Simulated assay, not measured.
Amino acid sequence: MSGRRWIKQMFIGAFLIPAMVCGTAFFINFIAIYYHASRAIPFGTMVAVCCICFFVILPLNLVGTILGRNLSGQPNFPCRVNAVPRPIPEKKWFMEPAVIVCLGGILPFGSIFIEMYFIFTSFWAYKIYYVYGFMMLVLVILCIVTVCVTIVCTYFLLNAEDYRWQWTSFLSAASTAIYVYMYSFYYYFFKTKMYGLFQTSFYFGYMAVFSTALGIMCGAIGYMGTSAFVRKIYTNVKID
């Protein structure tokens, strides 16, 4: 990666998730302070968390980025890559990346739909959750389904002569988080008795953090599986 793009990506990687989590937590904390709630975090703790982001997370990302740039070497593509992007032909509407992204998260969400109810109940109804073995099994199923779905989506995309598979594979798997967050609305209105600004912001704020983390995890799993698939199929391509 030439130029200064790696610096931009380093800062995004260092501060994207911490900024989202800290911003959500601080916003909810200010509401808790206003309502004099016992869940309010002391101001000193908030400052300590910010210091961790600047003096621990950022230096570690800097070291990791520099080591990665120096040790990774040149990209090892399985076949010759054309420097000039070719025009993408017209295709049917359901083969567009935006449609694939929206539909890609349905099956992964369906594989964890039942388990989400019990996890939400343990979070918000304060019931003890003890079937961790089953949760691990559901996690394995989620990973397998996510990889399979993203590979199928990427195959159809490449078959339509559309080479924009990287972000499509990531976002199609990460769209699982959208359905999880939509399900949290149903759970809030029909399964809980929460009300008021503090409880509502507390619920939806932390559910947004949970859904985003789940989406990033699914997106990373889907991208890694799809990358291995694309590398495998293009390794067998013979170019005269």
Score class of each variant (00 low, 15 high):
residue 174 A to V: 09
residue 194 M to R: 11
residue 192 T to D: 11
residue 21 V to I: 15
residue 19 A to P: 12
residue 150 T to Y: 01
residue 140 V to W: 07
residue 66 I to N: 12
residue 169 S to E: 01
residue 177 A to N: 08
residue 208 A to Y: 14
residue 154 T to H: 01
residue 133 G to Q: 07
residue 105 G to A: 04
residue 185 F to D: 10
residue 195 Y to H: 13
residue 192 T to P: 06
residue 75 P to S: 09
residue 92 K to N: 12
residue 226 T to R: 01
residue 142 L to K: 02
residue 19 A to E: 12
residue 28 I to W: 03
residue 134 F to N: 14
residue 101 V to Y: 01
residue 46 M to K: 03
residue 10 M to L: 15
residue 195 Y to S: 13
residue 21 V to A: 14
residue 26 F to Q: 08
residue 149 V to W: 00
residue 214 L to T: 05
residue 129 Y to E: 08
residue 165 W to V: 01
residue 76 N to A: 11
residue 133 G to W: 04
residue 197 L to K: 06
residue 109 F to I: 06
residue 77 F to P: 07
residue 204 F to Q: 01
residue 45 T to Y: 01
residue 37 A to C: 04
residue 202 F to W: 12
residue 44 G to I: 02
residue 93 W to N: 05
residue 43 F to R: 00
residue 199 Q to W: 06
residue 228 A to D: 00
residue 1 M to E: 15
residue 131 V to A: 13
residue 50 C to Q: 08
residue 171 L to V: 05
residue 137 L to A: 09
residue 224 M to L: 04
residue 18 P to E: 11
residue 44 G to T: 01
residue 11 F to V: 07
residue 112 I to K: 00
residue 193 K to E: 14
residue 3 G to Y: 05
residue 124 W to S: 04
residue 17 I to E: 09
residue 95 M to L: 13
residue 126 Y to W: 08
residue 190 F to A: 09
residue 213 A to Q: 07
residue 11 F to A: 07
residue 147 V to K: 03
residue 124 W to C: 01
residue 232 K to D: 05
residue 63 V to Q: 06
residue 34 Y to G: 01
residue 127 K to T: 06
residue 219 G to A: 06
residue 196 G to K: 08
residue 77 F to E: 13
residue 13 G to K: 13
residue 161 E to S: 11
residue 190 F to H: 12
residue 14 A to D: 14
residue 8 K to Q: 13
residue 223 Y to W: 07
residue 85 P to F: 11
residue 180 V to T: 09
residue 79 C to P: 03
residue 95 M to D: 10
residue 119 I to Q: 04
residue 128 I to A: 11
residue 6 W to F: 15
residue 88 I to V: 15
residue 28 I to G: 02
residue 184 S to D: 14
residue 75 P to E: 12
residue 50 C to Y: 05
residue 128 I to F: 01
residue 92 K to F: 07
residue 139 L to D: 06
residue 136 M to R: 10
residue 116 M to A: 11
residue 165 W to C: 02
